[in-house]
Design a protein around this nucleic acid. Structure first.
Length: 594
RNA sequence: GGUCGCGUAGCUCAAUUGGAUAGAGCAGCAGCCUUCUAAGCUGCCGGUUGUGGGUUCGACUCCCGCCGCGAUCACCA
């Protein structure tokens, strides 16, 4: 890494010139901004206290020292305390010819270290996947792929919330109003059918509640004492008591849901190494709670409920076990965390969960820490922001939920009509065409979501379909297809990328692209440390945009100097390969033509 | 009310984590296809970074106050 070399020598320069003791990591080096000449820039200001000189004087001295010590450097200039360093063309062309064929470029060797376990998706079985889940799934998948590229062993896991009062509501609704209806008979996806049951329950419950309120009952009491609610509670009790018929219905309906989920996951390109079911794990944690009670870390109320008191840490009290001995979410999470730790001895436990649960994870980590689990500090909540609609959050009651399947369908339609309009589908058969539309529409959707910093809330407007032009997935896919077409055409003229080191003049645009390619490994490292696909998304867009400018401005196949043509083909080949690689990290495929 | 987060161009997002003249796309306007894919390229327009102070060589970034928005503070998950 040439930056490291420059950084080290710059630190050395200061130490030698001013007999100081500056560590290399204190040298601020960055890519030179486009409007200035140079490749890397060192900020001189931090060293003025040491040198006690004017910025330009110190910069000059360091610049000269670097030129002497680092043979790859060609020149430097100084502007207002910034030392801009020019790396010689031969360094860049050498890099290109050495790496352009390397399909693994940018990725680290797989380490043999302990794995990273990443949980994401975590759906409920009472409603279909929606846009919020899509963001979760895409972030989870991409972060996992980025970590793999960074050399980590990664386990993708899902924890399905398949039990609880909400499932009983759906089951009850099915028994009452959907008997004899199955996904097959209704010709619908299983998750959609169960979702319908859930909605129906809610509607019927509201009616009952309204009647009770009219009879003079308070809203709270009405909701508690509505007959439907009591029935649901009763069913939950039966479920916990292993009642055969309840369990049977539960299995059947969950199976429907999973069939539906699988279709959605497949289409999204999401898969897991392991799926946990809450029905298997919900009792875990109770034992640890007992342990905590003995340790004196937790305390018990007179009614028998068990609590964690974190008022000393600036947080509140938190219940871990109800008076009747049943466990709550927090207890389950303590249990599953322990389970995962025992199973994998992971170096990190990642949870891709919305930022509405920030507090929950603070509490989880603190309790585990109090319970003496040193690995609590290895728990990372990859917290992502909400997807908002123009009028606020998605609300199922108001019917503003953006359904995952419908969204993908809509995107497909848009991709198709746009392709037809542009005449892109003319020489494709039906299969090829539909594959292409699917690839492009998913590329648009995924890129739209992943280009935003996960931590931030983002806005989705269902009225305006997601763009296919400009800063979008299809733009990047198009660039890849364009290059493939170019390479094909070159092949038919017996031209192809070559290994020889190009020694002619390098055009500014060409150099710009090479520099971007050169930074790819660093981009992956950064994205991995920040758990941020958006860093990769920004990079690959820059690369595509830069390439398109180059493509427009400079002829490749029409170039008369064969050495130049070959050089540009190598550059193109490498660009396509890195575009493909980076897009795969986002879970997006790129076409050969479009 | 307590805690946490957010506020950047008309709109959607960036800004290498304290560095140079705050950048892209969309929308709007004006151009570029008999020549490697026009889902592309070029140019123009667009900003007191919510607001008032502070810290310093230097602030969108850090600190304090205010305004606005959101999340959370469940014996839901």
């Amino acid at each position: 890494m040439i930056e490291t070399t420059i950084r080290n020598h710059a630190a050395q320069a200061i130490n030698v010139l001013y007999s100081a003791n500056v560590a290399p990591e204190h040298v601020i080096i960055q890519k030179t901004r486009k409007d200035f000449e140079g490749d890397f820039t060192i900020n001189i200001f931090p060293f003025l206290k040491i040198s006690r000189e004017k910025p330009d004087v110190t910069a000059e001295k360091i610049g000269n020292y670097l030129l002497e010590q680092v043979p790859e450097l060609e020149n430097f200039n100084i502007i207002k305390g910034f030392l801009n360093i020019v790396v010689g063309d031969s360094f860049w062309t050498g890099f290109l010819s050495e790496k352009y064929r390397d399909k693994m470029f940018g990725k680290q060797e797989k380490s043999s270290g302990r794995p990273v376990v990443i949980e994401f998706s975590s759906p409920n079985t009472n409603k279909p996947l929606h846009l919020g889940h899509i963001r979760n799934n895409l972030i989870g998948w991409s972060v996992a792929e980025i970590l793999k590229a960074n050399g980590n062993v990664v386990m993708k896991v899902n924890l399905v919330n398949d039990r609880g009062i909400h499932i009983c509501k759906s089951m009850l609704a099915w028994e009452k109003w959907f008997r004899d209806t199955s996904p097959d008979s209704a010709n619908t996806k299983g998750d959609k059918l169960v979702g319908e049951c859930y909605v129906r329950f809610d509607q019927e419950l509201k009616k009952e509640v309204a009647v009770l309120i009219e009879g003079g009952m308070s809203k709270d009491d009405a909701e508690k004492s509505a007959p439907l609610m009591a029935e649901a509670q009763e069913m939950l009790q039966k479920w916990e008591d292993n009642d055969t018929s309840v369990r049977e219905l539960w299995s059947t309906m969950n199976a429907w849901v999973y069939q539906g989920f699988d279709l959605t996951y497949d289409r999204l390109g999401i898969a897991f190494d392991k799926v946990y079911y809450e029905s298997d794990t919900y009792l875990l944690g109770k034992q640890i709670v007992q342990e905590g009670l003995k340790m004196g870390v937790l305390f018990q109320e007179e009614d028998g409920s068990i609590w964690a008191d974190m008022t000393g840490d600036g947080l509140d009290k938190k219940i871990l076990q109800r008076a009747d001995g049943t466990s709550v979410y927090m207890t389950q999470d303590i249990g599953t965390a322990q389970l995962r730790y025992d199973e994998y001895q992971p170096q990190k436990l990642l949870y891709v969960v919305g930022n509405e649960q920030n507090y929950h994870f603070d509490v989880l980590k603190l309790i585990l820490d109090k319970l003496g689990r040193k690995w609590a500090e290895d728990i990372v909540h990859v917290s992502y922001g909400m997807v908002e609609l123009p009028h606020g959050k998605m609300k199922s009651r108001e019917g503003t939920v953006v359904d995952a399947d419908e969204l993908m369908d809509d995107m497909y339609q848009t991709a198709e009509s746009m392709a037809v309009e542009l005449g892109k589908a003319d020489d494709l058969n039906k299969d090829e065409a539909s594959q292409l539309f699917e690839m492009i529409s998913l590329g648009a959707l995924k890129y739209f979501i992943l280009r935003v910093d996960p931590k931030k809330n983002m806005l989705f407007n269902p009225e305006e379909s997601i763009d296919f032009n400009g800063h979008t997935g299809p733009f990047i896919q198009y660039t890849h297809a364009r290059i493939q077409s170019l390479l094909k055409k070159a092949g038919s003229r017996e031209l192809k990328p070559g290994d020889g080191i190009f020694t002619g003049d390098v055009h500014a645009k060409e150099k710009e692209i090479i520099k971007l390619l050169y930074s790819y490994p660093e981009v992956i490292k950064e994205a991995a440390s920040q758990y941020s696909p958006s860093a990769v998304a920004a990079f690959v867009y820059d690369l595509a945009r830069e390439y398109n400018q180059f493509y427009q401005e400079i002829s490749i196949l029409r170039e008369e100097d064969p050495a130049k043509a070959v050089f540009r083909l190598s550059l193109s080949y490498f660009t396509a390969s890195v575009i493909n690689s980076a897009m795969e990290l986002l879970g997006i495929h790129v076409p050969e033509k479009m």
